[in-house]
């Protein structure tokens, strides 16, 4: 054994101490997150169900997925959900944050009210909105008839409108969370910027476009990434509100993974679908990074 110099010994000691801090969390994290993530990748190239032993099949799972109508329906529905959920939540969150970022008395009360849907039990949210969307006697359609729309949509009972109902509910639920992020972002903008713009005669819209939006770019970047991740992995709300129906009109990728992997026990095939989900999230995030970097230059 070589004699360690005192600095080397000290370094080893620090490393040990560092690891000892991380270890209690890392054991659980490695066994139940890191290993499964790597395993999912490997499984997607294998044929394995609960009864047989795993067997390497190359791209067979992906081929099967490519030819499976359910997969394409779920992919389309998930994208449709994301395209509705991301921009609507973003606009609502930013709008409310702008309204609340003013010297008004009782702002805290409004903030609490607007944030409240986010902490409400998911099942309660889904159940209440399902009733609100009730086609014949539900409050929403009563309101729509009262303002002169004779044939209001069937919402969760109609395959054309069910996804719209889910999107609206999810925007209502999530906007408070992102509003808080935007509020934090708004408060980092120095007031002097607005003062200077006012002196230069810039109107409210010009100030919003030229000061607020650019200053909020880091927040928006973070919000869009969080929204993207959460949109593509949507499950809970859809499962409780519509269970993917009527028909397959709200079937999303997560549900397909759940049905194939856990209900049917097709571990390999469901992992292949989850890799697609992962790659989509990764690509959208990378594109966001590129846009962010370009605008910083």
């Amino acid at each position: 054994m070589t004699v360690l110099t005192s600095t080397a010994r000290k370094r080893r000691r620090t490393t040990l101490i560092g690891w000892s801090f991380i270890l209690p969390n890392f054991i659980g994290f490695a066994a139940l997150t890191l290993v499964p993530v790597v395993a999912a990748l490997a499984l997607s190239f294998m044929e394995w169900d609960s009864y047989s032993s795993p067997e390497w099949v190359g791209l067979a799972n992906f081929e099967r997925m490519w030819n499976n109508a359910n997969f394409w329906v779920a992919l389309k529905n998930t994208c449709f959900y994301a395209l509705g959920h991301i921009p609507l939540t973003l606009v609502a969150a930013l709008g409310f944050a702008m309204l609340l970022n003013r010297p008004l008395r009782g702002v805290g009360l409004f903030r609490t009210a607007l944030f409240f849907p986010y902490v409400t039990s998911l099942v309660a949210v889904a159940v209440v909105w399902n009733m609100l969307f009730s086609p014949d006697l539900g409050p929403i359609n009563q309101f729509l008839r009262a303002i002169g729309i004779d044939n209001p949509p069937g919402w969760t009972t109609s395959s054309d409108w069910s996804m719209a109902a889910v999107v609206l509910t999810s925007v209502w639920r999530d906007m408070g969370y992102y509003m808080v992020l935007y509020l934090a972002g708004l408060q980092t903008i120095p007031p002097e910027l607005y003062e200077a713009a006012k002196v230069d005669g810039a109107g409210a819209w010009a100030r919003f476009r030229n000061i607020t939006l650019p200053s909020l770019r880091p927040t928006t970047f973070f919000v869009v990434i969080m929204l993207t991740i959460s949109s593509f992995k949507v499950f809970d709300l859809v499962q409780v509100m519509t269970e993917g129906g009527p028909g397959r009109s709200t079937l999303v990728l997560s549900q397909l993974i759940f049905r194939e992997g856990i209900t049917q026990g097709r571990f390999g095939y469901s992992s292949a679908i989850s890799m697609v989900l992962f790659v989509i999230v990764l690509l959208v995030t990378l594109i966001q990074f590129r846009i962010q970097q370009r605008s910083e230059r």
């Binding site: 997150t33 290993v35 499964p36 993530v37 395993a39 999912a40 499984l43 991740i229 593509f232 992995k233 499950f235 990728l253 997560s254 993974i257 759940f258 992997g261 856990i262 571990f267 469901s270 992992s271 989850s274 890799m275 989900l277 992962f278 999230v281």
Partner: peptide, 8 residues
């Protein structure tokens, strides 16, 4: 996404 590794 959690769904990507929930099966393993």
């Amino acid at each position: 996404p959690w769904q990507a590794y929930m099966v393993p």
